[in-house]
Simulated scan of single mutants.
Amino acid sequence: MSRFLLLLTVVLGLVPTVARAALRVVTTVPDLAAIARAVGGDRVTVQSLALPTQDPHFVDARPSLVLDLNRADLLLAVGLELEVGWLGTLQTGARNARIQSGGRGFLDCSRLVERLGVPAGRVDRSMGDIHPGGNPHYLYDPRAAMRVARGIAERLGELDPEGKAAYAAGLQRFTSELEAARAGWEKRLASLRGMPLVTYHESFPYLASWLGFQTVAFIEPKPGIPPNPSHVAQVISLARSRQVRLVLQESYYPDTTVRLVADKVGAQFVRIPAGTDVRAGQSYREHIEEIVTLLERALKAKETP
């Protein structure tokens, strides 16, 4: 090799390779982040504005979140007014035309699923925290998650046409793994079908639709309204008459009252993890597995004399 070619080889070896810039995806909740990461693979960077320990109805619109959105190529939202109290402020402050509502870089994922809990007639604040478009907690149902994943893959492909094949492969992998796991989950929780349950908030209609249990009472007298002693007494009486065996609550709510109800009824209290712990590397499938395991253990504990 000539001196010139040798020198050229050395110089080129010192020049850093220009990597393809990954699409920057920001999501409102961790479950959407986990799904986007599974579909997008190494062609995306993903972060969630809310933590799995936070109530997504109430997220502090911190300046750091504005900066995250300023740099985002795609914003994924749950929709159905789950984030109505905080997301709009962040979008405005971000000064990023891509991720404003209606833009190519904004995806309201509720448009991808079959909505439950759409109220009939007029809705007003006296009814509590009612969502006029339907219940927003659809990500507890893996069937809805698969529909969301398809929509995310399609939008990623629109923003990054060169990555369409990679996103299709990521979608296929995510869907196949989730479908295989779902069959096992349904078998393990078959005894839940038709079972009467009590929940704290109206958080689980999609979970109930998937697993077949019946929610007979809510510990909140109205959505978002803290329980009072009179209503709690009514819930306990009804739960006893219906022989309720499980009481469910999302992990970000205080649990003193719920544990009291479960104890008075003689039911198992199940504290449901509210979101995928994406920062710890948890996948959406692992998150649902965690929920299924908790329900399974509670059922077995109640069956044990």
Rank of each mutant, 00 (worst) to 15 (best):
K264V: 06
A50K: 10
R297W: 00
L246W: 04
R24D: 15
Q172D: 14
P254E: 10
A145P: 05
R242P: 11
L192Q: 12
L6C: 03
A280M: 04
L299H: 02
V232E: 00
I272L: 03
A61F: 00
R240M: 08
L80R: 06
Y284N: 11
D68C: 01
T9E: 06
D255S: 12
G275C: 11
V244D: 09
T276D: 15
S110V: 08
T92R: 15
L260D: 01
F204D: 12
R37Y: 08
P142S: 11
V10K: 11
R279S: 14
L211Q: 11
P161S: 12
D141N: 13
G157P: 12
Q47C: 10
V270R: 05
G88A: 09
A217T: 08
E286Y: 03
L67C: 00
P226S: 10
A153Q: 06
A181D: 04
V66Y: 01
V113W: 05
L156P: 02
I288Y: 02
L171N: 06
R297M: 11
F213G: 04
Y200N: 05
L65H: 10
T293H: 14
A217E: 06
E186F: 02
Q249V: 05
F174I: 04
E177W: 01
R3S: 15
G41F: 09
G102K: 02
G275H: 14
L116G: 10
R240D: 08
W210G: 01
Q268T: 02
L23F: 03
S209L: 08
P132R: 05
A144R: 12
T89W: 01
T256P: 00
L8I: 13
D160L: 06
E177P: 00
V232S: 03
E81K: 01
A120I: 11
L248Q: 11
T175K: 08
N135G: 12
S230I: 12
V270F: 05
E177Y: 00
R125M: 11
S48I: 07
V10M: 11
K222T: 14
D124E: 05
T27S: 14
R24H: 14
L192S: 06
Y140S: 13
S191V: 12
V270W: 03
A301C: 03
L80W: 07
G151T: 09
Y167M: 08
L238D: 10
E202Y: 05
P229N: 11
L189F: 15
D108G: 10
V261F: 08
N70A: 14
F269M: 03
T256I: 10
